[in-house]
């Protein structure tokens, strides 16, 4: 699986919530794109993640 463009070790039973917890990312502070599905901050379901999945985890930053 890929997370934010980097290869990430997948394991059976891994869910989005578990992944975010592993990464120490607060669910309310990020948006997740799981393949083509888009989940808003605080609205991320605890669904299973498969080995071929592509996940983007983004947040709001400073910018002009």
């Amino acid at each position: 699986m890929y997370v934010n463009g980097e290869q990430y070790a997948h394991r059976d039973g891994l869910t989005l919530h578990a992944l975010l917890a592993e990464l120490q990312v607060e669910q309310g502070a990020v948006v997740v794109m799981h393949d083509d599905k888009l989940y808003g901050a605080g609205k991320i379901p605890d669904v299973l993640v498969a080995a071929p999945d592509v996940i983007e985890i983004v947040t709001m930053m400073q910018g002009g």
């Binding site: 990430y8 983004v58 709001m60 930053m61 400073q62 910018g63 002009g64």
Partner: peptide, 19 residues
């Protein structure tokens, strides 16, 4: 006011966003 959207930096817990 403008803001940007960026990937969360993996392996950098506690990264500071603008939220």
């Amino acid at each position: 006011v403008t803001v940007s959207i960026r990937r969360v930096e993996l392996g950098a817990p506690g990264h500071v966003g603008i939220l």
